[in-house]
Computed example of a mutant assay.
Amino acid sequence: MKNNITRMAVCPLCGRVYHGAPALSREDNETLICPDCGTRQALQSIGVDSAEQEQIIETIHRHTQG
């Protein structure tokens, strides 16, 4: 039987409440952060600028909502 409990947490980087599985920060490999901040860190690591990071995250949200 699947557990339907939704995990809620506050991201220590952005301060937003998020649901679901956290990401592991690339900065210290210990801190659990929200999926959006995890995506930002991953994109930053390959040289994607901040404006494009936000566009990518908005696209992810549009395609995963609902």
Rank of each mutant, 00 (worst) to 15 (best):
G66R: 13
M8N: 12
Q41V: 02
Q41K: 00
E52W: 14
P12F: 05
T6A: 11
R26V: 11
S50I: 10
E27N: 09
P35Y: 03
N4W: 08
T59D: 13
C37A: 05
E54H: 11
P12I: 03
N29F: 13
E54N: 13
T59K: 14
P12E: 02
E58W: 03
D49V: 07
C37M: 02
D28Y: 04
T31S: 07
T31P: 01
N4L: 13
C14I: 10
Q53T: 08
T6R: 01
Q44C: 09
P22M: 00
M8R: 15
D36S: 06
V17W: 06
A51F: 04
D36L: 04
G38P: 04
I60W: 12
E52S: 15
V10L: 08
R16D: 12
K2T: 04
E27K: 12
V17L: 09
A51N: 08
P22Q: 00
A21M: 03
A51M: 08
M1H: 13
I56N: 07
A9T: 02
Q41N: 06
L13N: 13
D36Q: 11
D49T: 05
I60T: 07
A9G: 06
A23F: 04
L24T: 07
Y18M: 08
C37F: 01
I46S: 08
H61T: 07
A42V: 07
R16Y: 04
I5G: 02
I46K: 13
Q65V: 14
C37P: 01
Q53L: 02
D28C: 02
L43F: 12
A42C: 07
L24H: 05
I33M: 00
I33G: 00
G38K: 01
R62Y: 10
I5W: 09
G38F: 01
G66H: 06
